[in-house]
C-alpha cells in the first residue's frame, strides 16, 4: 500500500490545501437552496394535507389506474431492456463488426435527445399512417395512444441505463473463468448460464432498476404517444400535471410523494445490491 492511500483516513494530511471552508460552504448553500429546501417543501405540503385527505388523493380510482399503468408499463419496458440490453452490451463488448462504434455511440441517444422530441417522433412512427404503425394497424395492433405505445416510449428512454451498466461488467469478466468452465466440460450455453450470467447479474439488476426508476418518472416521451385517456392511458406524471392545472395542488403533491418514495426505494435497492455484491465478491480476482 502506498503512503497516500493510508493517509486518506487522516484529515490532517489534507489541510495543506486551502479552500475547504469556501468550497464546502458554497456546496452546502447551493445544495440547500436548489435541492433540499424545495424538496422539503414537497414533504411539508403533503404533511399538511392530513392522513385521510392524503389517502383519498392517492387512492382515487383514476390515480390507482395510473399507478397500475405506470408501474406495469415501466416494468415491462425495463424487462425488455434487460433482455435486449444484455444482448446489445454483449455484442458491443465481445464482437467485432462493421459499424460497431457508431452503434455504440447511438446507445446514448435517449440521454441526448430531448424527451419531447423523442415523444413526437415515436408518435409519428407508431400512429396509423406512421412508418411502423401502418404495418401494425392491419394486424389489429394499435401502438399509438395505447399502453403498448407507452411501453415502447419507456423502453426507448431506459435502454442506455441497462447497456451502460452492463458494458463495464462484461469487460471485467475474467476470460479465464470461461476457459475454466470449458476445460471442466461445460458447453458454451452452460458457461453462459452458470458462469457468465451470475457474474454480471448484479450489474444487470442494477441496470434494470435504473431503467425502471427512470420510466416511472418519465413524462415528455410518453405524453404524446399515450393519448392521455383517464383510466386507460394516463400515466401518473401526467396526472400530477392535470391536477396542477385544475389548481388541486394538494392532490398533485400527494401523488408526487408516492412516486418519489417509490423511486427512492428503487435507488436504495440498487445501492444495497451494489454494496452486497461488493461485499461478497470483494478481492477475488
Amino acid at each position: 500500500m502506498n503512503p497516500i492511500s493510508k493517509n486518506r483516513r487522516s484529515p490532517k494530511q489534507y489541510s495543506v490545501l486551502p479552500g475547504f471552508g469556501l468550497t464546502m460552504g458554497y456546496t452546502l448553500l447551493y445544495l440547500g437552496l436548489i435541492v433540499l429546501i424545495p424538496l422539503a417543501a414537497l414533504f411539508l405540503k403533503s404533511s399538511q394535507l392530513g392522513w385521510d385527505d392524503f389517502l383519498k388523493a392517492v387512492g382515487n380510482p383514476r390515480v390507482v389506474a395510473s399507478y397500475k399503468l405506470t408501474f406495469g408499463a415501466s416494468f415491462i419496458a425495463a424487462t425488455v431492456n434487460a433482455i435486449f440490453g444484455f444482448i446489445v452490451a454483449w455484442t458491443l463488448v465481445r464482437y467485432q463488426f462493421p459499424g460497431k462504434r457508431l452503434l455504440d455511440a447511438m446507445v446514448d441517444l435517449p440521454f441526448a435527445l430531448p424527451t419531447a422530441v423523442s415523444g413526437i417522433a415515436l408518435t409519428a412512427i407508431y400512429s396509423e399512417n406512421g412508418w411502423i404503425g401502418q404495418y401494425l394497424e392491419p394486424l389489429g395492433i394499435h401502438a399509438a395512444f395505447s399502453p403498448l405505445g407507452i411501453t415502447i416510449a419507456l423502453t426507448f428512454i431506459g435502454l442506455p441505463f441497462v447497456v451502460r451498466t452492463l458494458q463495464p461488467a462484461i469487460e471485467d469478466l475474467q476470460r479465464e473463468n470461461e476457459e475454466a468452465a470449458a476445460s471442466l466440460g461445460a458447453s458454451r450455453l452452460q458457461a453462459m448460464l452458470r458462469v457468465i450470467l451470475p457474474a454480471v447479474m448484479p450489474a444487470l439488476l442494477t441496470g434494470f432498476a435504473l431503467s425502471f426508476a427512470r420510466a416511472l418518472g418519465e413524462y415528455g416521451s410518453v405524453v404524446f404517444i399515450s393519448g392521455n385517456m383517464p383510466m386507460r392511458t394516463e400515466i401518473t406524471s401526467l396526472l400530477i400535471i392535470s391536477k396542477l392545472e385544475q389548481y388541486d395542488v394538494a392532490g398533485a403533491t400527494a401523488i408526487a410523494v408516492v412516486m418519489l418514495l417509490a423511486s427512492f426505494a428503487l435507488l436504495l435497492a440498487v445501492n444495497l445490491l451494489q454494496w452486497w455484491s461488493g461485499q461478497r465478491y470483494r478481492g477475488v480476482a
Binding site: E176, N177, S183, A199, A285
Partner: peptide, 21 residues
C-alpha cells in the same frame, strides 16, 4: 477436439474460481 472433450484438468494462475459459487 475442443478443450471440454480433451479431459484435461487446467489450473489457472489467478485461480479463475467462480466467485458466486
Amino acid at each position: 477436439q475442443p478443450v471440454g472433450k480433451r479431459q484435461v484438468g487446467f489450473v489457472f494462475q489467478h485461480y479463475a474460481l467462480f466467485r458466486h459459487m
